Simulated scan of single mutants.
Amino acid sequence: MGIPRLTTIGFDADDTLWQNERFFRQTEKLFAALLADQVQEEVVLAALLEAERRNLCIYGFGIKGFTLSMIETAIAVTGGRVSGDTLARILAAGRDMLAHPIEIMPYVRDTLEHLSGRYRLVLVTKGDLFDQERKLAQSGLAGLFDAVEIVSDKSAETYRRVFSRHGDGPVSSMMIGNSLKSDVVPAIEAGGWGVHVPHELTWVLEHLEPPREISRFREIAHLGELPALIASIEAGK
């Protein structure tokens, strides 16, 4: 029996289509600097990561949850002695992140334009609804997608639902993204193809070992390589 024809391609957004983690790292540095006269940077950043890990199930992914985690961490690591001025500056840093201009990754527009019309293109992104809608609108890429799904988390069941709603089911679908944990492995578990596009700053909580032994796993250096990869898969290579 041959490989089912690929009809639907899903794309992650943050750090796949546009830069994202870079701004979190910059804000982390600023946050640590605000507390530097009281707590060492490594202590602050370790405490922040643990707060983010705890709070994911409460706040979800995104800048607003990150900002709340910074405030919680500042209070905790200073024993409640953090000043009102420092808290105000943390809030301002979060607002600055929400207003940051979109920086499209290389090859993105050309690749989407090449694939548009040949396949159903679906944006599958997780995080805060308002912020993801803002970034998509500012990116100028919205018109290249046949559907947009902003989800609270990404699991095999998420991809089964999305690719059944907007395509011919997971087996005829491919998911592209920088996160092995969120974009690639669960899409493969759902029955689809998973294509990893590494990003130099992928968040530590998204790290996972590449499933190189799985036949539906692929890895490319950048999105410019995607059309050739798809062609090779469709040729049965």
Rank of each mutant, 00 (worst) to 15 (best):
G127Y: 06
E189N: 10
G127P: 06
M175C: 09
G192S: 04
R118N: 10
K154M: 09
E219N: 02
S139K: 06
P170M: 02
Q138M: 13
R118W: 10
V171G: 02
V148P: 04
L121R: 02
V108E: 01
L208N: 02
I220D: 00
E157P: 01
R160V: 12
P198E: 11
R120A: 07
L112I: 15
E206K: 11
L201W: 08
N178K: 01
R161P: 04
S164Y: 12
P170V: 13
K154H: 06
I214L: 14
V122H: 01
E157R: 09
R134E: 05
D168S: 12
K135N: 12
V195N: 00
T202W: 01
D110I: 09
G192N: 02
P170E: 01
G194K: 00
L121D: 04
V148G: 03
I176W: 00
V184C: 06
V151I: 15
F163N: 00
W193N: 00
S173C: 12
V151E: 04
T158I: 09
E113K: 15
G117E: 13
H114G: 01
G191A: 08
S152G: 14
H199C: 05
A190P: 08
D131S: 14
S215N: 11
G177W: 05
K154S: 03
L141I: 11
F163K: 01
G177Y: 00
R109V: 10
E209G: 09
L136F: 05
G191E: 09
E189I: 07
D131K: 04
A221N: 04
L205I: 14
A137R: 15
H207A: 06
G177C: 10
V151G: 11
F130M: 12
A221I: 00
S179T: 08
L180I: 08
R160H: 13
I220P: 00
T125G: 07
R212T: 14
A137P: 12
V185C: 03
E149Q: 14
R109S: 05
L123K: 07
E113P: 06
K181D: 08
S182D: 03
E149W: 11
V184K: 01
L123T: 03
P198S: 11
R216K: 15
V184L: 05
